[in-house]
């Protein structure tokens, strides 16, 4: 590995949170962005090719070193780490709506889901997946919600654009049936 890739590896090892590319650049100010990305690629390949228990991930606005999924169970069994609780289907529905329609108010989410979501919003905010991002113009200036960096990280996304676009979704019950 190149010295730069080793330096990046050390920095990523030291950090508990994903580090954005720009912040990694501060490690070696004279290095250009292209060289930095090449070094990151080198590190990723090193992990993938020479057989490591960890991998390099790029999500939630930054880079981080993650364990490989095949070791998850053994680690959890030995009680060295525990997976976060799985989100319920209802929580995922609420998150999906917020991710696509943000900034969005509570009433609008309830309109789409057909159920009340105030306690759900609270627990999603407590988990740090959504946050209040502003206030609407409507009656009572409702709070508007949006997703957070942690949301991107927990769903292995670099940007929101990585979610399928609305017109890419194959809707099971769509147009073919319209001939009826």
């Amino acid at each position: 590995m190149s010295p730069l890739a080793k330096l990046l590896e050390a920095a990523l090892f030291a950090s508990a949170r994903p580090i954005p590319t720009a912040e990694l650049g501060a490690l070696s100010p004279e290095t250009e962005r292209g060289a930095l990305l090449a070094a990151l690629d080198e590190l990723r390949e090193h992990y993938d090719v020479s057989g490591h228990g960890v991998e390099l991930a790029d999500a939630g606005g930054g880079w981080q070193i993650l364990t490989r999924p095949e070791y998850t169970e053994a680690i959890e069994r030995a009680q060295l780490a525990a997976r976060p609780q799985r989100l319920s289907a209802a929580s995922l529905e609420t998150l999906a709506i917020i991710a696509y329609r943000q900034p969005i108010g509570r009433a609008e989410i309830e309109e789409i889901r057909g159920v009340s979501v105030s306690s759900m919003l609270k627990s999603l905010a407590e988990r740090g997946l959504v946050d209040v991002v502003g206030r609407g113009e409507g009656l009572g200036r409702p709070l508007l919600y949006g997703t957070t960096e942690l949301f991107l990280e927990q769903f292995a996304l670099r940007h929101l654009d990585e979610l399928p676009r609305a017109d890419e979704l194959a809707i099971a019950l769509r147009p073919q049936l319209k001939t009826a």
Partner: peptide, 24 residues
């Protein structure tokens, strides 16, 4: 709603993948 449910499936898959990887 149906469209949103498809997004849920995507999120579920992505979230499960990330859940199985521990960070530093």
């Amino acid at each position: 709603y149906q469209q949103m449910r498809e997004v849920v499936d995507v999120l579920e898959r992505l979230g499960e993948g990330r859940r199985n990887r521990f960070a530093r």
